[in-house]
Design a binder for these strands. Sequence first.
RNA 1: GUGAUUGUAGCUCAGUAGGUUAGAGCGCCUGAUUGUGGUUCAGGAGGUCGCCGGUUCGAACCCGGUCUUUCACCCCA
Length: 453
Amino acid sequence: MAQKPAIPKGTRDFTPIEMAKRNFIFDTIKSVFLKYGYQPIETPAMENLSTLMGKYGEEGDKLLFKILNSGDFLAKADEQMLVEKNSVKTTLQISEKGLRYDLTVPFARFVVQHQNEITFPFKRYQIQPVWRADRPQKGRYREFYQCDVDVVGSNSLINEVELIQIVDDVYKALNINVLVKINNRKILSGIAEIIGQAEKIVDITVAIDKLDKIGIDKVNEELLQKDIPQEAVDKLQPIINLSGTNQQKLDTLKTVLQKSAVGLKGVEEIETVLNYLQTLNVSTAVELDLTLARGLNYYTGAIFEVKALDVQIGSITGGGRYDDLTGVFGLRDVSGVGISFGADRIYDVMNQLELYPKESIVSTRLLFVNFGEREALYSLQALQKIRQAGINAELYPDAAKMAKQMNYANKKEIAFVAMTGENEMNQGKITLKNMKSGEQQLITVEEMINIIA
RNA sequence: GUGAUUGUAGCUCAGUAGGUUAGAGCGCCUGAUUGUGGUUCAGGAGGUCGCCGGUUCGAACCCGGUCUUUCACCCCA
């Protein structure tokens, strides 16, 4: 019985046309990464759960796809836990592997594991899919590609600057208008410190991160709900509502944060980065946004986020500095900074705006019509030369009806069709037809290569 | 995980006061046109109406469950 084919929730198939578009994105991003001296690595789709668990918070643990152990895994599981139906504890007994949730944690693992083979500062990029057992919705998938660039083993702010240059380069190449938002965890810490709520920094940042979405009143409500005193919430107001140019914001912050050493350090860092960018004439708008917090709690310095200006979708790139990511794997004091391009969201943005250059989606340039065995052989010989000349070309595999073969060319948007019948073979030539204009000419292979190359 | 929402031909969608053989457009196949396509014309194939169960003499339509789609919350690329 035929079953209805389907793919898991939140995953997608990609047709050849869609792949051409996606590859255009990946190729563009990759070439920019390479230009800045980053080298590729790959890590396995699955990691040990011990590597993954506890790195993304409690919520993250739930969103990990776990892989069932092989063999008779139930026989080895603790009976008591099965009886209790305690999913969390039982999971650890029947599953020891999981699909990666992002590329940063596997990268940290990689750095620690290969610390003696790699040279620091280590600049790597990684373009691979990640999986999250989230409920899918707009711009959110259960399988999606991240394109990460990170540099570890360097504290220099030049790295932060470079990452923004990369963002600038990538989105210019893709023709997407974006706004880069930056913030600094140290400023957020300073603010929490000033209002006497240093230990509540996570709650505070999570709440003000929503300012854009839910408005100031709801943010304050949430803050109070998290047991932050009214007095502290009041003190927070002028900071959240900070406006003006980046410089004006920084000036205000310097005054507000003058009693917080961390806070001032953060301000100084941002200022340095912004100054670099100005000198380098980076034209993408970069805005200091104090409400930018980003969930990941391992960021310790700069925080970045990139939003597409012409399409309403979540952030399409995000990242920041993390001072001690490798610490959990036993390698201390290695600072890293990186960003991640969300390829699938970029793909959605490009699709909505139809930003693909025409030449990015061509495949075959020339099709040989198949008239029969002898003719096919003649065509194949010509094809060798044509392919050597770097032209994508193919022969229709069956001696099907002409209409069918021409239709095939139409569907694949093949620009030229070559016909080699009795006539052509006798003269050692080929009839070349331009599918757009309909014009035909009887020429040699060499002439043909010149025309269509 | 919570709350909504969707599901009819390959695709986009019609269709019900519950009543025999479920429709359209596009696409596909065949022919007009046995070396000339994208146009036209003629014909044809293709559906257990997401799945399971219930109500009913009778269900694509009503009810329940389940899966799926889309969206919001949480969280996030």
